[in-house]
C-alpha cells in the first residue's frame, strides 16, 4: 500500500490504442489481398510481403540510425507497405516496390517526423513517385490469371479506365468490375472485397462513413451529370481502394464532420475532372494527394462552434 500511483484523471482509457486501430485496418485489407491473390496469382502476395517488409525495415533502420524511439510497434508501416503494393501492377519488378516503400517511409513519413507529422499519405506519395520515375513499369497491366502460378504469364491488357480514355469503350460488365475480374493495380480491382473491409472498419468504428460514401457519391453524380456512366466510373480504377483506405487516413484528412464533407466532395470533383478532362486515365491518387495538402486549410475553417459561444458560422475561434 506504500506505493500508490498518483496521476492526473482520467484513470481509465478507451480500449482503442493506435496499435489496435491499425490492426483493424490491416484486418480490413485482408479481403482485398485475398481477392488480389485469387485474380493475379501468388505474385500479388509476394509483392505485398516485399513492400510490407521493406516499409517496416526502412522505418526501423531510420529510427535506429538517428537513435529515435522505435515506432514500428504501432503497425502503421505495415499498412503503408500493403498499400504501396496494392497500388502497383502485378507485372512490376519486385525492386520497384522496395524503391516505392523507401520513398514512402523515408522521404514522406520520416523526413517530416513520423506518423502524425506527414502531410500527405505516404503510400500514395510512393505510388506517385514510382509512376513519375518508371511510368512504363507502372502501367503494364495484365488480365487476371486464374492459374495461381508463381510467374505471371498473362497477356497484356489495359485497365477499364485506360480503355475508356483511349477508345471510349467500356469492355467490362458491371459484375466483372464489382468482383474484380479486370485489369488494374494489385489491390484495387475487387470492389466487393474492398467493401467488405469498409463494413468491418465501420463496425469497429475505426472510420466514419462520411469520406468514402460522399467521395464515391460525388464521383457518381458528377459523372452522370457530365454524360458519363457513373456506375462504371465508381467501380473501376482505384476509387474504392482510395476512398476506403487512403482518403480516410487519419493524419492527412480533416477532423470535423463538416471538414470531412468538404474534403470528400473536393476529392470527387478532382477525380472526375482528372479522369474526364485530364490526360491521365486515372485521378484518384493525385486527387487524394492534392486534398491532403488542402486538409490543414479545411481544418482551419471548419472548427466546431464552441459550447456557450454565439452563432457566428465557422469563425467561432476568432
Amino acid at each position: 500500500m506504500s506505493n500508490l500511483i498518483v496521476s492526473y484523471a482520467p484513470h481509465i482509457r478507451s480500449a482503442k490504442s493506435t496499435k489496435q486501430l491499425m490492426a483493424d485496418v490491416i484486418i480490413a485489407l485482408i479481403p482485398a489481398l485475398v481477392a488480389s491473390v485469387y485474380f493475379f496469382g501468388l505474385p500479388a502476395l509476394v509483392h505485398t510481403v516485399v513492400c510490407v517488409l521493406s516499409c517496416v525495415f526502412f522505418e526501423w533502420i531510420w529510427e535506429r540510425a538517428f537513435k529515435l524511439p522505435s515506432t514500428i510497434g504501432d503497425l502503421s508501416a505495415i499498412i503503408t507497405g500493403i498499400l504501396v503494393a496494392f497500388n502497383m501492377p502485378v507485372s512490376a519488378p519486385y525492386w520497384l516496390g522496395i524503391t516505392g516503400s523507401a520513398f514512402a517511409i523515408i522521404v514522406v513519413k520520416m523526413f517530416f517526423g513520423g506518423l502524425g507529422s506527414n502531410f500527405v499519405n505516404p503510400a500514395l506519395a510512393g505510388r506517385a513517385f514510382m509512376l513519375l520515375c518508371w511510368p512504363v513499369l507502372m502501367t503494364k497491366w495484365t488480365v487476371p490469371d486464374f492459374t495461381m502460378s508463381f510467374v505471371t504469364d498473362a497477356v497484356s491488357t489495359a485497365t477499364p479506365l485506360g480503355v475508356l480514355a483511349e477508345s471510349g469503350q467500356m469492355p467490362y460488365s458491371y459484375l466483372s468490375l464489382f468482383l474484380g475480374n479486370i485489369g488494374g493495380c494489385i489491390g484495387e480491382v475487387s470492389a466487393l472485397a474492398i467493401l467488405i473491409g469498409f463494413v468491418y472498419l465501420l463496425i469497429r468504428k475505426v472510420i466514419t462513413w462520411r469520406i468514402p460514401v460522399i467521395y464515391v457519391l460525388t464521383v457518381f453524380v458528377l459523372t452522370e451529370i457530365l454524360g458519363g456512366d457513373g456506375l462504371y466510373y465508381i467501380l473501376s480504377g482505384g476509387l474504392m481502394l482510395g476512398a476506403v483506405f487512403m482518403a480516410t487516413d487519419y493524419v492527412t484528412s480533416p477532423m470535423s464532420a463538416t471538414g470531412h464533407i468538404i474534403y470528400a466532395v473536393g476529392l470527387g470533383v478532382l477525380t472526375v475532372v482528372i479522369r474526364m478532362f485530364g490526360s491521365l486515365p486515372e485521378g484518384v491518387s493525385y486527387s487524394i494527394l492534392l486534398m491532403n495538402i488542402v486538409t490543414p486549410l479545411i481544418d482551419t475553417y471548419t472548427k466546431n462552434r464552441i459550447y456557450g459561444k454565439p452563432k457566428t458560422g465557422g469563425k467561432s475561434h476568432e
Binding site: T18, L21, G116, Y250, P254, S256
Partner: peptide, 8 residues
C-alpha cells in the same frame, strides 16, 4: 504518450 496523429 505518443505524438498526435490528427485522428480527430
Amino acid at each position: 504518450e505518443g505524438i498526435c496523429i490528427k485522428c480527430g
